[in-house]
């Protein structure tokens, strides 16, 4: 890949991550869901970064239908924890690209492994919390567009007592 191509690839990936953050903050959840492929996994581990999600508890371990259920809850008007909804601002930074080919642990049609950092400012009545973590996205090329097949958020304090997380990280 030439230098120009690398720059374009970097920009393409960053634009996707920035768009994802914006869709969450603007509560455009249907568009957020559309960034995902059908077999996507959204994972927020607890008690460490490298746990086994099948045998250990996670804060979030969602397949696509659970992601849908989660965001339906946000907009359904019945959730007390969404009255009013928490306001969030996501700051995405430190975006680096690893080619999947260099990562033997990833299989299938993953084309890119993206490392980034996120800081989420959360505000709800009486509460103002900053959430910070490293994020790993696996992206695939589907129908000419990059889409998310895997997102893992490694909260810096995922082994501590945490207040309610009723928004997308």
């Amino acid at each position: 890949m030439s230098g120009i191509e690398e720059l374009l690839e970097q920009q393409r990936v960053e634009q996707l991550l920035f768009l994802e953050a914006r869709l969450i903050d603007e509560r455009r959840f249907a568009e957020w869901e559309a960034l995902w492929v059908e077999d996507g996994i959204y994972w927020v581990p607890a008690n460490g970064d490298d746990t086994d999600p099948r045998s250990q508890v996670s804060l979030i371990y969602d397949n696509r239908s659970r992601m849908h259920n989660r965001v339906e809850r946000y907009v359904g008007g019945k959730a007390i924890s969404q009255q009013p909804p928490p306001r969030t601002v996501h700051l995405v930074s430190n975006v680096t690209i690893e080619l999947a080919a260099s990562d033997g642990t990833v299989d299938g049609d993953v084309s890119l492994v993206i490392h980034s950092t996120v800081q989420v400012a959360e505000s709800r009545p009486g509460v103002r919390v900053d959430w910070v973590g490293r994020v790993i996205h696996h992206l695939v090329e589907r129908e000419g567009a990059l889409r998310i097949i895997f997102k893992k958020v490694l909260l810096v304090d995922n082994d501590q007592e945490l207040t309610t997380i009723d928004f997308l990280l």
Binding site: V57, L59, R70, R73, S81, T164
Partner: peptide, 14 residues
């Protein structure tokens, strides 16, 4: 359950 579940946050908010 947990801080990011679909049951627990509503109990907590209540």
């Amino acid at each position: 359950f947990g801080a990011a579940g679909v049951i627990e946050p509503d109990d907590a908010a209540t």
